[in-house]
Design a protein around this nucleic acid. Structure first.
Lengths: 204, 204
DNA sequence: TGTATTTTCGAGCGAGCGATCGAACGATAA
DNA sequence: TTATCGTTCGATCGCTCGCTCGAAAATACA
């Protein structure tokens, strides 16, 4: 077993422990125990607890982003792009639930350079998604508030999954992706979509 | 200043500190300092740190739920109900950003009886929302997976807000509520809403 | 085999944690 | 004044934390 493999195994243990206990509550001793090594041995692979959190977060986004780029290559239809984006997101989320829970929930604990690098790669992921939504909306302005709100609403829908998803009970990645793509494109009330004069929120 | 008022002031300080530092990282000394009292003095108002977190979470949901019931009274149109639900949610979220950040982010740290009581009141809030979505979908089965997924997608959209909302930059509660209600009802692609034969996700 | 390098660990550091205690405070009533 | 009672605090407890050190064990190569 080479160094790289052992390091990735340590990362996986860290992700599991951080996901189950939360980053702050999880102790370095918990991680070491899960990885099957001593505390001092753990520090052979990292310089600090925060670096462990950083490594889990950055590695996750790296793989997620690379997979997205691969899947989107050559696809020009915005609706197909959206579906690919959502499906890619769910496939990764449901495969690496623990890592993604850490990324979603604990990345905000990072500071300094660690924070900067994770924020940067998160931003790349966000911008790639925003491009797709911009095409869907036919919005010319990349700074449009509507574009921002809509993109972040989509992010909310798909990121929140880690708080409720249960493998046996809920659909698989494809099922979820189909459903949420449909919801994001057409809403739950499609028959009223083409202007029927009745708007919501102006009646009070 | 009476006891109750002082206690609520302590709760507010706790919410602020928990929101800024995270529940685990925030020390009881931080809370005491923010509340302008000593550590021992703080323990006159609570039995433990966890009880403080519980009080913040439970109180928040209590107010949110009561406000929702008040607003929904007498409204029968599902679309109006949806708009009211979302608006109520945002109004509360944007008024008590810090408390709601704690609720969304840290409630999972609770254990035992504390956990049970917060989970229970969260469930009431969820079920009230699910009723509305059920009406919108015309779904007869309350256990339908689609109903569950759709409701949780809505929850994701509106709960995620605490991670990105910036008071100066983004719209106010009403603006957000209008936008998200529209998105949830009709999607971003309304012109393709009524079955045009082209579906997403079956092309690959 | 001997030697050099990589990997592992037991023991323990200083710091900070949540929580507790008995004493003392200030306002009120006798 | 004295006694009462709700409220506040300084001092401190036992414990766990992130992290480090020097030495030993495992491995690689001669």
């Amino acid at each position: 077993m080479r160094y790289e493999e052992r390091f990735e195994s340590v990362l996986k243990s860290a992700a599991t422990v951080f996901a189950r206990r939360g980053y702050q509550r999880a102790s370095i001793r918990d991680v070491a125990r899960a990885a099957g090594i001593s505390v001092a041995g753990l520090y052979y692979y990292c310089k600090s607890k925060e670096e462990l959190l950083f490594a889990v977060c950055f590695h996750s986004f790296d793989v997620l982003l690379q997979s997205l780029h691969r899947s989107l290559k050559g696809v020009s239809d915005p609706k197909q792009q959206l579906h690919i984006f959502i499906l890619n997101h769910f496939e990764y989320f449901l495969t690496y639930v623990e890592a993604m829970k850490v990324v979603s929930h604990e990345a905000g604990m990072l500071t300094g350079e660690f924070d900067a690098r994770v924020t940067e790669i998160k931003r790349q992921y966000y911008l790639r998604c925003q491009q797709i939504v911009q095409l869907l909306l036919g919005e010319p302005d990349a700074e449009s508030p509507r574009l921002r709100t809509t993109t972040l609403a989509l992010f909310g829908m798909i990121n929140w999954v880690y708080t409720w998803y249960r493998p046996g009970r809920d659909e698989d990645a494809k099922g979820l992706a189909d459903g949420m793509t449909e919801l994001f494109l057409h809403g739950v009330w499609p028959q009223a979509a083409v202007g029927n004069g009745q708007e919501v929120g102006n009646g009070g």
